[in-house]
Amino acid sequence: MEADVLPCYVVCDFSSSMTDYIGELGAGLREFRAAAHADPVAAARIRVSVIGMARTPWVLQPLRQVVEIVDVAEQSPCAATFFGPVFDFLHARVEEDVNALNDNGLRPLRPIVFFVSDGRPADAAEWPAAHARLTRPELVAFGVGAADPDTLTRIGTARVFLGGVRLGTALAATVLHPRRVHFRSTRPPDAVPRIHGEAG
């Protein structure tokens, strides 16, 4: 019998504007991993990939068990972030991974992209077209530092975290217990809720 699995892509911004927050990214991923260890039943159906982005995207961790999630503390910041290339990259990567899961006798649920950034891309005019092509996954945006709420609200078609919630808590609520997060991917971007307190 096929088993349901939930593919999740954690996209981490490593631009220079994120220099002071790379430690926070690492701590959030470690907290998420600890939450997975504490809830093995939920964690068993999660597969997580970690994607870095700056001028171009790169894979820090391919899709694997959530308890194996990598530490990003040693990543070095880059000069600028381009969002368009990471959305194009995810478009191809998600399709490839979903097909691979099917080939291995698993039944992938709708993927989640958890996008962690301050929302300050260098390709402000170009990225929306690439974002619009990324229709398969649910997109959740998590603002870090002096985050640009307008940009992140456009990105997070399912949910947006803009303060008051730790990264690890937001990841656990979104990925380990997705039924507790009421996705509204059909809402227009200006209707996506801004989250300022604990997720529930």
Rank of each mutant, 00 (worst) to 15 (best):
V67N: 07
C8H: 04
A100Y: 00
L6V: 05
G28Q: 07
V59I: 15
A80P: 00
T56Y: 12
Q65L: 12
L109D: 05
D39H: 14
L101R: 02
P7C: 07
P7N: 04
Y9M: 02
Q65M: 04
V66T: 12
P121C: 08
E24V: 11
D71N: 15
L106H: 06
A27E: 15
V59L: 15
S117D: 11
R47G: 02
F83R: 07
F89K: 10
V41A: 13
A54N: 06
R120V: 10
L109Y: 00
S117P: 10
D13K: 10
D103N: 11
E126P: 00
E96Y: 04
P57Y: 09
M18I: 08
L90E: 01
N99V: 13
W58Y: 15
H37W: 13
A132L: 03
N104D: 15
V10G: 04
R45P: 02
A42N: 12
A54W: 00
P137I: 05
V41M: 08
V70N: 05
E138S: 15
A27T: 13
V11H: 01
D4S: 09
H37L: 10
A92T: 14
C12T: 03
D39Y: 02
V94Q: 10
N102F: 09
V59S: 10
L106G: 00
L63E: 09
T19M: 06
V5H: 02
F14T: 00
F32K: 04
V86F: 01
E138R: 15
V86S: 05
A132T: 09
P85C: 13
I22V: 15
A44V: 01
S17H: 05
L29C: 11
H131K: 01
R55W: 06
V72S: 00
T81G: 12
D97C: 07
D4R: 11
A80C: 03
P85V: 12
A27K: 10
P40M: 09
V59P: 05
D71F: 11
A79G: 15
A27F: 07
P111S: 06
T135P: 00
N104K: 13
R47N: 06
I46V: 15
F83M: 15
D123I: 08
A43C: 08
T81Q: 07
H131Q: 10
P128S: 02
V94R: 02
D123P: 02
F32N: 02
A36M: 08
Q75P: 01
P128H: 01
V41H: 09
